[in-house]
Amino acid sequence: MIAENTQTQMRKGILEYCVLLIISRGEIYASDIIAELKSAKLLVVEGTLYPLLTRLKNNGLLSYNWVESTSGPPRKYYTLTPEGTAMLSQLDGTWQELSFAIAKSKNQTAL
């Protein structure tokens, strides 16, 4: 249970980081985000992504446009706002620190 909790916590932060990374590459549709996250084995079920996207959007990190679709209803295409880009660069720094911390920790335990 404790392990699960930690895993969830870790995954949660990283998921958010990855979503921002994927969107930063250009306008993208939610299903495509899901497909990428699935191939990266970071996401198990799709339902978890929507609350995350909504929260990021509400925090002003994301915005979206409705784009007509050839098959079916119009789709939401997400982009990063300037705040989102700033946040992403912050997270980049954090990730550097984290990976350094992990690498350091692992090396020291190995010694």
């Binding site: 198990v44 079920v45 799709e46 339902g47 978890t48 609350p51």
Partner: peptide, 8 residues
């Protein structure tokens, strides 16, 4: 695919 409430 969408996941149950438990997954959320």
């Amino acid at each position: 695919t969408m996941g149950s409430v438990r997954d959320f």
